[in-house]
Design a binder for these strands. Sequence first.
DNA 1: GATCCTCGAGTTCG
DNA 2: CTCGAGGATC
Length: 676
Amino acid sequence: MTENNADYDRLLELRDELQEHNYRYHVLDAPIITDGEFDRMLAELRAIESQYPEWITSDSPSQRAGGGISDKFEKVTHPAPILSLANAFNGEDIRAWVERISKIDAGVLDAEFVIEPKLDGLTVVLHYENGLFVRGATRGNGEVGEDITINLRTIPSLPLRIPVNQSGPAAPARLVVRGEVFINLSDFEELNRRQMEAGEKVYQTPRNTAAGAVRNLDSTVTATRPLRLFVYTIIDSSAPLPTTQIEQLELLKNYGFPVNPETAHSHNINDVIQICENWEPKRDSLGYEIDGLVIKINDLDLSARLGTVGKDPRGAMAYKFPAQEVSTKLLDIGVNVGRTGVLTPFAILDTVEIGGVNVRQATLHNFDFIKDKDIRIGDRVLVIRAGDVIPYVVGPIVEARTGSEKVYSPPEVCPTCGQAVSHIEGEVAWYCTNSSCPAQVVRNIEHFVSRGALDIEGLGIKIVEQLVDAGYVSNISDLYKLTEEQLLALEGFAEKKAENIVSSIDASKEQSLDRLIFGLGIKGVGEVVGASLANHFGSLDRLMEATQDSLESIDGIGPNIAAEIVDWLSLEANQTVLAELKSEGMWPVLEKADDETRPDNLAGMTFVVTGTLPNFTRSEIKKYIQNLGGKVTGSVSKNTTYVLAGENPGSKVTKAEELGIRVLSPEDFAAMVDHE
DNA sequence: GATCCTCGAGTTCG
DNA sequence: CTCGAGGATC
């Protein structure tokens, strides 16, 4: 038995030493022995363990190699909900947040804030009982995650037992922490190099690779992935919790958890904003991907008192870096049918987060765009959020092709009505020419009721579709024949809603002639041309008598648009619609503007507006400038007099600076209007 | 005929 | 915001 005891003592010694060296190597990044020595010690431990399998414990360093294949992961209910965070995209958002919460609790006014990098990885929840790592789970839906304990055990920096060394504080009976699993960029490249050499598939992003590894059913595969961990929150503990986030991080570090050293803190909100805004250049030198920063109130009691809004705690905020290029997989290409019958292809993407929103779709503009860029289904494509709002596919990443991508061919029939599509020589667009194509009918009515046209409140896409499906409406004049009884028969309609819709349709009879002309949906006739037609003809009766020549004489209308208008008016179906509008009393005539009293402070000036203005919406400011005799256009050119720039202005400001055009702030503009 | 400008049309997510 | 295309201008 003495030999037996000696073996056991050696085993305990090896376990402790290996744990310490592992910690020094993977957490402190300061090894004191060589890899060879480590491997020899590990081999010795394994030898003893194979002789006495009953001595193997779950926290033995030998257990990091993985082993055992699961067929599924068990569900784990988290001890407390794993919360998400509200997003801020700029300094103003941060300021607004602090202002908001300081009204709830004045303690915020002199609170300290802690800033931590927000890793682009996977959230995990780790459970320790009497210092032993017993369970690890994915975030899941925030309430219930999946048990991935055997995979997490393979992560070298994850402590299997805390405290990792004797100098650490004693472990509480129960401790649950939250952390993030991720892969370093250099490790990721190295992994891909190995994969390529072995003729295996190459991974796309560190994040997706980490996600896949952590949920791999074979933990020996997980063990070969260079996963790392940072821990940042105690979710539950049987011991009293620290009172500040800084102390919490310190405690986690002392237990032996890997804790991100890149933190900052400040009492001054201006400094916090400065730190956030200055962080981006530093981003590339971190060695791992982050998608922003997390700002937390240091005082954890104060933070808890502030409570939550939905699933977002009020005491913390995610500061997201500005939109950037992201790559994702193009799963398929879909086709929309527009109001005019134009077929527009759009990308169906593997959902990807860009600038804080999940993007699933992006326009591909037209079929030539797909062909010119050689975009194939299955390609990895580069996606950016243009103007910070609309996702835009830049092009394929040709180097990432595997050979299984499929060249896309445009549809030969309309995806909605099945009729053959047509194409006009020299034009890019392909059309569905079936004027009773359901997609076109719906889109046309949508356009008619939209804000810029007749602005019929309560009628959205959904309800328009419902009305068309029910057979109540097949063109714009049918709207005026709708009755409350008809609407009540539809799903989701009660008296109030039916009443509101009928009355707002009725109210639209008071709308102006230019809006009605625009609403008709004649190709080439938008807001501007609609307004010039209204001004020129004064009524629909006179517009109906318009000829090619009389139309071409109007400024802004050439032979093409004139022909479109003449064609539209000559169609019998359209004549019927107009006749019905007239008999329903939807027949506005031009109200002569009172030129005498109209101010013209801004006469002769052309404005371009960009960004968000404090006191106006886009259409309000447009109207305001026009009422003062000014012109508003969409793009900056040398004809532009001023560019009016609000909050978060777009590229128009740069363009204006290039052309030497004066850029006005909202204050400049207000002063100018006041003065003149 | 070339070039610049403006307009129209379609567009994402929550 | 983007792109295409029509219109105006030289």
